[in-house]
Structures are given as C-alpha cells and as structure tokens.
C-alpha cells in the first residue's frame, strides 16, 4: 500500500477511552484526530477530511445523532457509533440517521479495529467500483455481472427479490443494515414497516445459502435492529 495512511476521527469526551484507543489506532497504521465535543467534531470532519469517524453518542454539547445528521448533509464518510446505549431503538435511530455501524461499550479493541477496517474498505469500493464484480463469502460466490449465485460450485436459484436483497446486503458487507434501510432499498419506500416479510425473505435466503440455517455464518441477525452480511 502506497496510499497515505487513512485518517480516523475519534469523537469521545472520555479521556480514558481516548487514551487506550490512541495506541491501538496508531498501531494499525492510521492517523488519528481527536475531538471532545460535537462542535469540535463537526469542525474536524469538514476541515481535516477524515476517512472514518468513530462517534460517541453522549457528548457534552449535543447528541451524537445530531452530528451524524449534519455530517450526512454533505459527506458519505463512514461513521461508526461507539456508545454505551445498548437498546435496539438507539441503534436503529443512529443507523437510520446515517451511521454505518454500531459498536456498544464496553467493547473489544480488536473488534473495533476490524470494524474500522471494514468501513474503510467499503468506502474505497464505493468510490472506485471494483474491477472484479464477484463476491466470495466462504463457499458462496456471487457473480454480479452474470447475476449467478453459486454455493459449493452448485448454482442456487434465487427469485429476483431474493437476489436484490442479497446484493443489497453484500454491498454493505460487514456492516449492519436496519430493517427500514433494507426494505426501502429492496422494496421501495412504501414498505418500510413490513419487517415480518423481510424476515421471511432472509429466512429463505438462509435456507438456500447457509449450510446450517439455524447457525448462520454469513447472513447474521442483529435482533431487533437488522442484518449483517459477513464474508469471512
């Protein structure tokens, strides 16, 4: 990699958290910018042009959700929420506001670094469309050009909506998509509340793609929030 190191903006008012994040981020080879308040975060986000934002929701001046909304007004930079709020509604609120992922405190540093990596990769793939339009996840391959999905070399027959749902999930591979986001992207804005139908489609996809649908490896559920496609 000859690129300039990616820039990570950490918005967090708790010094102890920043203190242990700092070495971890630097060890991963990224540049680090810190912000303690929402105001500061917005300023840094616009001036320093970070490649990913790690955002705490409980900030001293105003709520982190507001930061997400304002940043989303002009930027699609990946935002990972880092919060002690563990309720499903909090997660959905943040994700629907435009955040890309959600890590709940207390957290494992390793896991956070992995999520940052996923987010960076996703951002990169969005900005320059991949030359290789095939996605591989375990024994599943998805050929985006030919619209063919195989599992262990065998072609799997998917209905048009199943295929659309699968590709929507893989496009955000590694990140959570809320029910609302999925429904809106696959079925259109009129069906944003039909989460039961969505569950049935995910279940069908699991039956067709997962070796053991009750212990899924790729189509994972974030109960009450949404789904996440995991490639490895």
């Amino acid at each position: 990699m000859t690129r300039t190191p990616a820039c990570v903006l950490i918005v967090e008012d708790e010094l102890p958290i920043r203190r242990f994040l700092r070495p971890a981020v630097e060890a991963a080879g990224w540049r680090l910018i810190e912000a303690e308040t929402a105001q500061r975060a917005l300023l840094e986000a616009s001036q320093s042009g970070p490649d990913v934002i790690i955002l705490d929701l409980g900030l001293p001046d105003f709520d982190g959700i507001e930061v997400v909304r304002r940043v989303r007004e002009w930027s699609s930079v990946p935002i990972i929420i880092l919060s002690a709020r563990g309720q499903e509604q909090d997660k959905i609120l943040a994700l629907d506001a435009g955040a890309d992922d959600y890590v709940q405190k207390p957290f494992n540093v390793g896991e956070l670094i992995a999520r940052i990596r996923v987010a960076l990769r996703h951002a990169a793939s969005q900005s320059q469309p991949s030359a290789n339009p095939t996605i591989v996840a375990g024994d599943i391959t998805i050929d985006l050009h030919r619209r063919v999905v195989t599992k262990g070399g065998q072609e799997v027959h998917l209905t048009p909506l199943e295929y659309k749902l699968l590709t929507t999930l893989t496009r955000h591979a590694g990140m959570v998509m809320t029910h609302r986001q999925l429904l809106r992207e696959v079925w259109g804005p009129g069906h944003a509340e039909d989460s039961t139908y969505l569950r049935m489609f995910v279940r069908q996809l699991r039956l067709k793609l997962e070796s053991n649908p009750t212990q899924p490896k790729h189509l994972q559920t974030e109960v009450g929030v949404g789904y996440r496609f995991v490639t490895e």
């Binding site: 039961t196 569950r199 279940r203 699991r206 649908p213 009750t214 212990q215 994972q220 559920t221 109960v223």
Partner: peptide
C-alpha cells in the same frame, strides 16, 4: 412476528 430459528441463530 419472528421465525424462531432466526432468534436461535442470533
């Protein structure tokens, strides 16, 4: 409405 297997899987 939930299929039970999804909750078990999660």
């Amino acid at each position: 409405w939930y299929p039970l297997d999804e909750l078990v899987g999660a």
